[in-house]
Simulated assay, not measured.
Amino acid sequence: MIEEAATAPAARRSPSLAYKPLVLVALGLVYIVWGSTYFGIKVAIESLPPLGMLGVRFLLAGAILYGFLRLRGVPNPTREEWRSSAIVGALLLLGGTGFVTLAERDVSSSVAAMVIAVSPLFASLFARLFGERTTGREWLGIAVGLLGIVLLNLGDLRATPLGAFLLILAPLCWTFGSMWSRRLTLPKGLMGSAAEMLTGGALILALSVLFREQWHAPTTASLVALAYLVVFGSIVAYSAYLYLLENTRPAVATSYAYVNPVVAVILGVGFGGEALTSLGWAALAVIIGGVVLVMWPRRR
C-alpha cells in the first residue's frame, strides 16, 4: 500500500457514497492481519520479553522496508520528517502496540482485542479537536460498540488493574497519534511506514534495555510468531493503515477495532485454548453491529 502525503488537500479526503477498491483492500488487510496479531503477540511473548520482542519486530520491519525503498531510489527523509516520524512512532508503536503487548501478559488475546474497540470513540473525539466532523450515525455506531465493551467488562475482562489500565491507555495513544499524523510533515509513501517503525522500534528497544528485560532461548513458536508480526503485522498491515488514514474518514480508518476482535476470538478460542462466556459472545455480537453503522458510507 502507498501512503499519500500527510499534507494532502482536504478535497482528496472528501467522503463519497462508495469506497475505492484500494481502500477496500487496505481495510481487508487491516481487519484480518491485525486481528491475528493479538494472538501472534501472545505466542511471541511466551518466550520473548514484551518490549524487546516489539522493538526487534519494528526495527526489522522498518529496516527491510527502508532498505528496499532506498534501493529503488526513494529519497531519504528530511530532518523534519524524521522528527515527525519519531513522534508518530512513539505514540502508535510504543504507546499503542507497546501497551497492548504489556497488557497481554495478564489478559487473553481475544479480550485485549475486544477492549481496543474503544479506538473509534477516541478517534472521533480527537477528530473534532482537529476540526473534523463526526456524523450522528457514526456516534450511534460508536455507542453500540461501547455497549459491547460494557458487556465484556461484565463477563470476560479479568485482568490486573495495571493490565486493564494499559488496555485503555493504548487506544488513547494510538488514536491521538493517528489524528496528529494527518497534520505533521511525514515522508511520502511507504517511506513513512519505514521511518516510523525505525524510530519507534529504536525507542522501544531502548526502553527494553533500560528496564533490563531478560532474554532467554526463544521457542520455535515464538520465532515464527515474531516473523509473522514483522512481515504481515508491520510491513503489510501498518502500511495499509497509514493509507487509510489519508484516504478515509477517521471512523472508517479505525473501524478495524470492531472487526479485529472477531478474528482474535476465532484464533484465541480455536488455537490458543482461550474461552469466552455467553456474555462475552453477546458482547462480540454487539461490537460487530457497531461496525455496520460506522462503516456505512456518508452522503455528500
Rank of each mutant, 00 (worst) to 15 (best):
N153G: 15
M53D: 13
Y256A: 02
G55F: 02
N76V: 14
P161I: 01
L229P: 03
S16C: 04
L169F: 09
M1H: 06
G96L: 01
I288K: 06
G289Y: 03
L169G: 04
S181W: 01
V115R: 07
I32A: 15
T248P: 13
F232G: 03
P171G: 04
S124E: 06
T220P: 03
L140A: 15
A5R: 14
L207C: 07
W174P: 03
L152I: 03
Y31L: 09
T199K: 07
P75M: 10
V107N: 12
M179L: 15
L190V: 01
R298D: 11
T97F: 11
R128G: 07
W215A: 08
G141E: 09
G273T: 06
F122M: 13
S108I: 00
S47W: 01
M1D: 09
I142M: 15
V262M: 14
F39L: 14
L245N: 07
L210C: 06
G98L: 11
G189E: 12
V43R: 05
E4A: 12
S255A: 14
G73K: 12
D106G: 04
G55K: 04
L276D: 08
G35W: 00
L65G: 03
T160P: 14
G35S: 10
A5L: 12
R12P: 00
H216G: 05
Y241W: 12
G35A: 10
R300K: 13
V236D: 00
Y243F: 15
L244H: 02
A123V: 00
K20P: 06
E3H: 06
F271D: 09
L167P: 04
L279I: 10
G290R: 02
F165E: 02
L22D: 11
P21M: 13
R249K: 15
G272W: 00
L167R: 02
T248I: 09
A143V: 10
A202T: 09
R12W: 11
K42M: 08
L51Y: 01
K20M: 11
L93T: 00
R249N: 05
I168L: 15
R133E: 13
E4T: 02
L121R: 01
A170L: 11
L121C: 07
T175A: 07
T134S: 15
L157G: 03
G201N: 05
E132H: 10
F165Y: 11
V265S: 04
R128L: 13
A61S: 10
G280L: 07
V111E: 13
A11V: 06
V150D: 11
F99Q: 08
P49K: 09
S36L: 11
G52E: 06
L92N: 08
F271V: 05
L229H: 00
A282S: 13
W215P: 08
T7D: 15
Y238A: 04
S85E: 11
A282W: 07
V230F: 08
E132L: 13
A202P: 06
A86M: 14
E104C: 03
E132G: 02
L125D: 02
I204C: 08
S181H: 05
T7M: 13
L152A: 09
P77H: 06
A6M: 10
W34G: 02
V25D: 13
I142D: 12
V262H: 03
T97G: 05
G155I: 00
G96Y: 01
